[in-house]
Design a protein around this nucleic acid. Sequence first.
DNA 1: CTACTGACTGATC
DNA 2: TGATCAGCCAGTA
Length: 115
Amino acid sequence: MNFPEKVIKLVSVIPAGRILNYGQVAILLGNPKAARAVGYALAALPAGTEVPWHRVVGKDGKVGKVSLQSSKYIEAEQQRRLESEGIIFDESGYFPLQPYLWQLSHIEVQAILGE
DNA sequence: CTACTGACTGATC
DNA sequence: TGATCAGCCAGTA
């Protein structure tokens, strides 16, 4: 299974109100250093996708931290969607990652990916 | 195969 | 606290 497919599959099953950061997704997929690749996979998603990509954020609970050349509107849109799921941002655009972080084992991930 | 790029991170300054 | 630099991986030319 291609890396992007794994990313999409995992992100697709993130419960509402739950969050995962890029690094975490990379770890769950077996490549702790592949955070950038995760971002690349999400960037390839079509505009009207059903995948809850907004539930994947930067490591400190910050959206649209770096990069974001082609998708300057994503930051505001992502934050808006997260707030609609009950996540509260502070004035700086951050939110506590821990309380929302989706805890799941590598075994569960394998089950999700069907491996 | 090499070079460049990017929804990332962590260390440094 | 905030800006920079340097490694990371996968995809594309």
